[in-house]
């Protein structure tokens, strides 16, 4: 029981923070003042306006697309990482995968500002300050983590299964679809959940690549709290977003568990 005390202490801090968030969310916002009025549900009515719900919808759509595209882009790299017999190739892949981790989110995103703008490359369609550009940045940001999770899952699959399928006449494509892919599903589910969850709270990428036109949940919370001085509104929006996020992650988790091999 005593061993649980440190965990309880840490969780108490989290609970206190959530309690403060809830308290702020039900206090009346007085424009032009830091003073708050009485208890009200007006902040929740405000964040149900189309522009705020639109930010939540955009966040969910961008997060889902990021998850799918990251998965598609990361899987071949993870597969190569797990299956290559060459230690040199594996080291090279690992270095290339981990390198973005060491550059920091701001530096990486700033590099994308230059690439997605028309200063370095001329794009056939506008990329910078659009959802497309934000999506590129989010996928790039998520790829190293997805690759590592998938590679770990793939490396746990005994190659004997694939060899057995091949020895029974299955072509490589069929071996992959019927053996490797289903067995790597736990990695796909956990990688997908992690990428989806953290993309829901993305901040610097939409802030810098969205040019103020693409707002995700964290950007709206910041705008409300720091630019409009509307702390109760920011708290209410954060709370609504938190509840929706938890709901979605729970549903996805259950879905993943149901389809896991």
């Amino acid at each position: 029981m005593k061993l649980l005390l440190p965990a309880a202490a840490v969780l108490a801090v989290f609970a206190a923070a959530l309690g403060a968030l809830f308290r702020w969310s039900v206090l009346e916002f007085v424009p032009g003042s830091l003073q708050t009025g009485g208890v009200t549900l007006a902040n929740f009515r405000m964040v149900m306006a189309p522009q705020y719900l639109g930010a939540i919808r955009d966040t969910v759509v961008l997060s889902a697309l990021t998850t799918v595209l990251t998965l598609l882009a990361a899987y071949p790299v993870a597969y190569a990482l797990a299956r290559t017999p060459s230690r040199r190739v594996r080291s090279l892949l690992l270095v290339l995968t981990l390198a973005p981790f060491f550059t920091g989110a701001i530096v990486r995103t700033y590099a994308w500002v230059l690439v997605l703008g028309n200063t370095v490359v001329t794009w056939p369609v506008p990329m910078l300050f659009t959802e497309r550009g934000v999506l590129v940045g989010l996928v790039h940001f998520s790829m190293p983590t997805m690759i590592l999770i998938l590679a770990a899952a793939l490396s746990h699959i005994d190659p004997a299964y694939e060899r057995a399928a091949a020895s029974l006449g299955a072509r490589p494509g069929r071996v992959f679809l019927r053996v490797t892919l289903p067995l790597s599903l736990p990695g796909i589910v956990s990688g997908g959940l992690i990428v989806f969850a953290w993309t829901l709270s993305a901040f610097p990428t939409p802030e810098m690549l969205g040019g103020g036109k693409v707002k995700m949940i964290a950007n709206v919370v910041r705008d409300l709290g720091l630019d409009s001085f509307n702390w109760p509104g920011a708290a209410a929006f954060a709370l609504v977003a938190l509840v929706l996020t938890l709901g979605m992650l729970t549903a996805l988790g259950r879905l993943g568990a149901r389809h896991a091999p």
């Binding site: 916002f29 424009p31 032009g32 705008d223 630019d227 409009s228 001085f229």
Partner: peptide
Amino acid sequence: RAKNLPGWRE
């Protein structure tokens, strides 16, 4: 300005 800013932003 201080009073209108939140409304302006919205």
